Simulated scan of single mutants.
Amino acid sequence: MQQDGPPVSQTILQLLREWPPGFGGVERVAHELASVWGGRVYSFDPQRQASHAIDSCPVSYPRQVLPCSPPVARLQLPWPTRILGRLLLSSKHLHGHLPSPGVLLLLVAAKVLRPRRRVTAHWHSFLEQSPGFSGRLFLLYQWLALRLLPLLDGVVTTSPVLEEALIHQGCVSKRVQVLPCCLSNAQEQQLLAIPARPVEPGRPMRVLFIGRLASYKRLDWLLNALAELSQGWELHIVGDGPHRDAFETLSHSLMGHDAPVTFLGQLDEAAKLQQIAAADVLVLPSDRSNEAFGIVQLEAMAAGIPALAFDRRRSGMGWVCQLEGLPWAQTPDELANVLALLMHNPEKRHDLGIEARRRYQALFARHHWLNTLQTWTAQN
Score class of each variant (00 low, 15 high):
Arg116Ala: 15
Arg116Glu: 15
Arg118Cys: 14
Val119Leu: 03
Trp123Gly: 01
His124Ser: 07
His124Tyr: 08
Leu127Val: 13
Pro131Tyr: 07
Ser134Trp: 04
Gly135Val: 04
Gly135Arg: 10
Leu137Ala: 11
Phe138Gly: 02
Leu139Ile: 13
Leu139Ser: 05
Leu140Thr: 11
Leu140His: 12
Gln142Asn: 10
Leu144Gln: 07
Leu144Met: 11
Leu144Phe: 13
Leu144Tyr: 03
Ala145Pro: 01
Leu146Phe: 12
Pro150Leu: 11
Leu152Lys: 05
Leu152Gly: 03
Val155Lys: 00
Val155Pro: 01
Val156Lys: 00
Val156Pro: 02
Ser159Phe: 02
Ser159Leu: 01
Pro160Ile: 06
Val161Pro: 05
Val161Ala: 07
Leu162His: 05
Glu164Ile: 09
Ala165Cys: 11
Leu166Cys: 02
Ile167Asn: 03
Ile167Asp: 02
His168Ala: 15
His168Leu: 14
Gln169Asp: 07
Cys171Leu: 15
Val172Leu: 12
Val172Asn: 14
Val172Tyr: 10
Arg175Ser: 11
Arg175His: 12
Arg175Asp: 10
Arg175Met: 04
Val176Ile: 10
Val176His: 06
Gln177Asn: 08
Leu179Arg: 04
Leu179Thr: 08
Pro180Phe: 09
Cys182Asn: 09
Ser184Trp: 06
Ser184Asn: 08
Asn185Gln: 13
Asn185Ala: 14
Asn185Pro: 08
Ala186Glu: 15
Ala186Met: 04
Gln187Pro: 00
Gln187Phe: 04
Gln189Pro: 00
Gln190Cys: 14
Leu192Phe: 08
Ile194Glu: 03
Pro195Trp: 13
Pro195Val: 14
Pro198Met: 13
Pro198Gly: 06
Val199Pro: 01
Val199His: 05
Glu200Met: 08
Pro201Thr: 13
Pro201Cys: 10
Pro201Met: 09
Pro201Gln: 09
Gly202Glu: 11
Gly202Cys: 11
Gly202Asp: 11
Pro204Tyr: 07
Pro204Cys: 05
Met205Ala: 01
Leu208Ser: 05
Arg212Asp: 04
Arg212Met: 03
Arg212Leu: 08
Leu213His: 03
Leu213Asn: 01
Ala214Ser: 10
Ala214Val: 14
Tyr216Ala: 00
Tyr216Gln: 10
Tyr216Arg: 13
Tyr216Ser: 04
Tyr216Val: 08
Arg218Gln: 14
Arg218Ser: 12
Asp220Leu: 05
Leu222Glu: 02
Leu222Met: 09
Leu223Gly: 03
Leu223Arg: 02
Ala227Trp: 00
Glu228Thr: 11
Leu229Asn: 00
Leu235Gln: 07
His236Trp: 07
Ile237Ala: 02
Gly239Arg: 00
Gly239Lys: 00
Asp240Asn: 14
Pro242Lys: 04
Pro242Val: 10
His243Gln: 13
Arg244Gly: 11
Phe247Glu: 09
Thr249Phe: 10
Leu250Gly: 06
Ser251Trp: 01
Ser251His: 00
His252Cys: 13
Ser253Trp: 08
Met255Arg: 10
His257Ser: 15
His257Leu: 14
Ala259Asn: 08
Ala259Gly: 09
Pro260Tyr: 04
Pro260Cys: 06
Thr262Pro: 00
Thr262Ile: 12
Phe263Arg: 07
Phe263Ser: 08
Phe263Lys: 07
